[in-house]
Design a binder for these strands. Structure first.
Lengths: 141, 141
DNA sequence: CGAAACCCTACAGTCGCTGTAGATTGAGAG
DNA sequence: CTCTCAATCTACAGCGACTGTAGGGTTTCG
């Protein structure tokens, strides 16, 4: 049985984050020692590793909750799991497109700045005048 | 003189966001009507447009605060402005690299799933076993 | 047995907004 | 000039996904 700190180290999670996951019902309430400290078993370790890995892949806690629910019903079709992953992929791709546009714009902006005084700074000018902007950056990078 | 709603429309900002910027000292306190409603001038419009544009380029409010401070002292060197923009560019590039790795991993994961039952779902398996993972995804996509 | 390292709860703070409730004001129509 | 109704006001709570803090209690090891 693992103490929370050990579990944290094994999964690369902060102790508070584990307690937070428990609080929002993503991790089940573990057993306790007589003194009231949490003790975790291998199932908890697996579940937390799953959560952390999915988080690193950019899944929201809500999506992860769904994935965990789905994986608890092994006879169901895989299609729902696939749909969640596809959605995640599409979101990542959309973010990539936007970020790339930002990169281009930032580079263009920086490249234009050859003067020395803030008064003539091209960077500030570009930021002032959206019109000069090439990129079609919407909101939410 | 513009009412807050007009300013909001002109800059593509929500009314509450403008009040929030005022609250955190990013926008100066505007004049008021007798009844207490905010009225904005052209300078406020410019400043807000600058803020929104910088936000769209991914600058944090803190970075924007610095940029605004710098642009208020037109005789200073442009180097500090450049440094902020360079830092922003580096951050965007780092995010791009990470996101691209995520995209590859997600695609690989989805591609691997050809079965029908959740019990054999490759997606869930990949999420369970970090070892199978090709991408070196750290934290913070 | 004592010290150090760990763990507990409860709550506030982060970032950048967004939404709500309930009251007041302003601008155009009649 | 009054009515109406959209727009505005303040104050505060909530989002996601944690992180940090205060002020204690517990475990483990020498």
């Amino acid at each position: 049985m693992l103490a929370i700190g050990t579990l944290a180290k094994r999964t690369g999670t902060k102790v508070q984050t584990i307690r937070y996951y428990e609080q929002i019902g993503l991790m089940p309430e573990p057993g306790r020692t007589e003194g009231g400290q949490r003790r975790y078993d291998a199932a908890a370790l697996d579940r937390l590793a799953f959560i952390r890995h999915a988080r690193q892949l950019g899944f929201s806690l809500e999506a992860i909750r769904e994935l965990l629910d789905l994986s608890d019903t092994p006879d169901r079709s895989c299609a729902e799991v696939d749909a969640i992953a596809q959605k995640q992929l599409r979101e990542v791709e959309a973010r990539l497109v936007r970020l790339e546009a930002l990169r281009v714009e930032l580079q263009r902006m920086i490249g234009a700045c050859t003067v020395d005084r803030v008064a003539d700074c091209r960077i500030l000018e570009v930021l002032r005048d959206h019109e000069e902007c090439l990129a079609d950056h919407g909101t939410g990078a």
